[in-house]
Design a binder for these strands. Structure first.
Length: 565
RNA sequence: CGGACCGUAGCGCAGCCUGGUAGCGCGUUUGCUUGGGGUGCAAAAGGUCACGAGUUCAAAUCUCGUCGGUCCGACCA
């Protein structure tokens, strides 16, 4: 049931997706839904096994929770509404609502609440490897972002913050081991903690051009954070004083790019001003003209629940102009709060929107001409390549990554909602402190391929390859040759090595191409010609043809075992 | 949600503009051939041309609608 394709599927864009399909690892059923063919299933199981071993080693206990989850659980945490259309919802015959598990914080908290009653039973960390469902807006890149995917999710419950930190670190270390054993270079990256706060969230990223997430790296001090979180340091400005500001007519120029072209001034000389709607109140946000606002940072800084760009009406009312001519100098709504990126502190001689359609102001001194509180200067922009690391002051680089894991200290968000309490040693009740930890198992399989392939196909690490060894049997109809292959296969299996024999009636070239495409870590060629030359030929997938070794059949198994190390 | 493009054999595509017998490559099956990096030859099977309506003597082709897919964008002033 292994079939390889010569042509790339038309819907695949990135190498790992093309190879998944061409090598016969998965087969698409519909958008975002894939069947794991025999080869894919074997790799998926190997990744799962590594995860199980490392979870067990870290002291976590395996459980299995239902995929179908009663709506009541989600209503109790408030997420039945807040998850929005991202969650698949179904009804039973009695019209009761259920979700198809997108994650399992609610379920696990309900379970633990019922099972754990005493501090004597804590701490505990449970995990499961279970299918998850998310109604992605745009499933893409094969297994990378699909509607149904295999996830390892773990949840820790502790009595104290210190203990919770310890549970967190145990998972953190386990994750490092899991990815290393899968042959992946995965980096822990600081991530935003959403509504919870604190410094306790790390994403594990595999660096890849095809990655969907941007990560800021400091090669000097090792700081790594995703773009939502990454902070930068800015130099103190010492701008020359400028004369009083004046209006400039800028017809038909709305974007910074257009005005900058019109006036012949670089974008960085501008102040970009946006009106946001923060919990229903308008706020003006100013950043350097060549920068983007980081909504997550802004949300934290303003400490609001809901943050979005204001609609056109609000913009007009707040500034007095339509979008494109908004600025911090004398907005129509004089009481509007203006917050500013730290890089603008002390900025003089800037160009800003005039709060009058088709006009801008030049020679603006933010301190002199605008009403901005000192405390309203903060780090509010998305970092980019070359920005200064907030930790060590050296430049950072931006790289792309695939998020394969996430560890998160949750606090009491769910244990409060579900009243997950335990009896303390002084006969009181206390709320458990929770952490959650996910690994995208199916995504990890694809990340391995993305990180390890060449022009001929996949280069599987031995630990997660569908088979570690492929015996390419070139003359299957010659009894003595086939006998050598049979014996070698039996020996390898006895040594605990996975082996597959390609005994198809195909030409050698076909077998070699397929073995390279699928990417078995070690290829053994057994053929009449080779045997006449003294033995069988062994070669690692990542070795060149010239590094192929001829070994006597009796020594082959040992030689292969050596190559797999 | 908005825009663009696309649905023709298992896969990759042509044909559509200018309506008239449904084609090519890969794969599959059979025979011969070849036998160390996707061999060559010959033959065969395989399609409601996404679906529905319309125009027409006649629709894969033109028109409208529906469904599905892919990509881009979603207000950064």
């Amino acid at each position: 049931m292994i079939q390889t394709l010569r042509d790339n599927p038309q819907d695949a864009e990135i190498d790992s997706h093309k190879l998944l399909v061409r090598a016969g690892i998965v087969k698409k059923l519909a958008g975002g839904l894939y069947t794991y063919l025999p080869l894919g299933m074997r790799s998926l199981k190997k990744v799962q096994e590594i995860i199980r071993q490392e979870m067990d080693r870290a002291g976590a206990l395996e459980i299995c929770m239902p995929i179908l989850q009663p709506a009541e659980l989600w209503k109790q945490s408030g997420r039945w509404e807040s998850m929005g259309p991202g969650m698949f919802r179904v009804k039973d015959r009695a019209q009761h609502d259920y979700s198809m598990a997108p994650t399992a914080e609610e379920t696990v908290t309900e379970v633990i609440r019922n099972v754990i009653n005493s501090y004597r039973q804590l701490p505990v960390t449970v995990y499961q490897i279970q299918w998850k469902f998310r109604d992605e807006i745009r499933p893409r890149f094969g297994l990378m972002r699909s509607k149904e995917f295999l996830m390892k999710d773990a949840y820790s419950f502790d009595t104290t913050m210190e203990a919770a930190d310890k549970s967190y670190m145990a998972m953190f270390e386990a994750y490092k081991r899991v990815f290393a054993r899968c042959g992946l270079k995965a980096y822990p990256v600081e991530a935003d903690t959403g509504d919870i706060g604190g410094k306790f969230s790390h994403e594990f990223h595999v660096l890849a051009e095809a990655g969907e997430d941007g990560i800021a790296f400091c090669e000097t001090c090792g700081y790594a954070a995703n773009l939502e979180k990454a902070e930068r340091k800015v130099a103190v400005r010492n701008d020359a004083d400028c004369p009083a500001y004046e209006e400039v007519h800028t017809p038909d120029a709305k974007t910074i790019e257009q005005v900058s072209k019109f006036m012949g001034v670089p974008g960085s000389a501008f102040v970009k001003s946006l009106i946001y709607n923060a919990d229903g109140k308008p706020v003006m946000v100013c950043v350097p003209g060549d920068r983007d606002v980081n909504d997550v940072k802004l949300k934290h800084f303003l400490d609001v629940k809901k943050l979005e760009l204001a609609d056109f009406d609000t913009v007009l009312k707040a500034s007095g102009a339509n979008a494109g001519s908004v600025g911090p100098v004398k907005p129509a709504d004089a009481s509007i709060r203006i917050v500013c990126d730290q890089a603008l502190k002390g900025a003089k001689g800037c160009i800003v929107g005039a709060n009058k359609d088709d006009y801008h102001l030049k020679n603006v001194d933010l301190a002199r001409d605008c009403n901005i509180a000192d405390a309203d200067f903060a780090d509010l922009v998305v970092v980019r390549d070359g920005d200064i690391c907030a930790k060590c002051g050296k430049p950072m680089v931006i790289k792309r990554g695939i998020e394969v894991g996430h560890v998160f200290k949750l606090g009491t968000k769910y244990t409060d909602a579900f009243n997950a309490v335990y009896k303390t040693d002084d006969l009181k009740e206390a709320t458990m402190i929770m952490g959650c930890y996910g690994i995208g198992v199916s995504r990890t399989v694809q990340a391995v391929i993305e990180q390890s392939h060449d022009k001929d196909g996949i280069v599987w690490p031995a630990s997660v390859a569908p088979y570690q060894v492929c015996i390419s049997l070139l003359d299957p109809d010659q009894a003595e040759v086939a006998a050598v292959a049979d014996k070698l296969e039996a020996e390898l299996e006895a040594m605990g090595v996975d082996v597959i024999v390609d005994d198809r009636a195909e030409r050698p070239g076909v077998k070699f191409k397929d073995a390279d495409l699928i990417g078995f870590p070690v290829r053994v060629v057994v053929g009449a010609k080779g045997l006449a030359n003294g033995g069988v030929e062994v070669k690692r997938r990542d070795q060149d043809k010239s590094q192929m070794k001829i070994v006597a059949p009796v020594e082959a198994a040992a030689a292969i075992k050596e190559l797999l190390k």
